[in-house]
Design a protein around this nucleic acid. Structure first.
Lengths: 107, 107
DNA sequence: CTGGATCCCACGCGATACTG
DNA sequence: CAGTATCGCGTGGGATCCAG
């Protein structure tokens, strides 16, 4: 099961992107750090539980960094890690492709 | 559930890439058309059934084209569709990112 | 405000056997 | 050679309730 790691850059990336909301969350963070509530509002289709799970997964995968400010009320910020930042190049191409793809589906 | 379509290029692409073997299969086809057996040999970790399913899914998603030659023994070739071809740009960035990411995980 | 803890179900995926 | 059919299970994801 771990055989996929350290081998193929495509299989490894695939694994990270398996989470249903991985790409959209990474996109939301590509423009800078965001608080949990901001993400929630930006993604009306995702439930709070699902968003939390996806954020935890991305954090475990070292793509994002979670910072908790011990305040009242609590404030938690998410931002791309250095390696997560490098994923923005992928996001750019995904956006180009996605728009093209959607247009293709319609016609 | 279909609300994801025609909206966000990231969510749409995410959906296509959900299949566990989508990216690696697309990569295999990015270098040109391949026969079923070729794909199977290139991907030793994927079972025949899973490969078939993934190919069917990608075909349904209009990213690949399946051509059956009515011969004996049968020959079936897969190749990227025009829109699938445009996904190669994404693959290029995924490869760059993936290699970087793997290196990051080791250190 | 930002979650955690459960429950629960559908679907994805693997394994196996069979086929034109 | 290139599949199909079927089954069974594990897990991802939604819903709901609870909490610091």
């Amino acid at each position: 099961m771990q055989s996929i790691y350290g081998k193929c850059p495509f299989a490894t990336t695939q694994r990270v992107l398996q989470g249903k909301w991985a790409i959209v969350v990474l996109f939301q963070l590509s423009s800078g750090k965001k608080r949990f509530n901001q993400l929630e509002k930006s993604l009306p289709e995702i439930t709070r539980t699902a968003l939390t799970r996806q954020l935890r997964q991305l954090e475990e995968d070292k793509l994002i960094i979670r910072t908790v400010y011990p305040e009242v009320p609590p404030r938690v910020e998410y931002l791309l890690s250095p390696i997560g930042d490098k994923f923005k190049k992928v996001l750019d191409e995904i956006e180009i492709f996605g728009l093209d793809y959607i247009a293709q589906l319609i016609s």
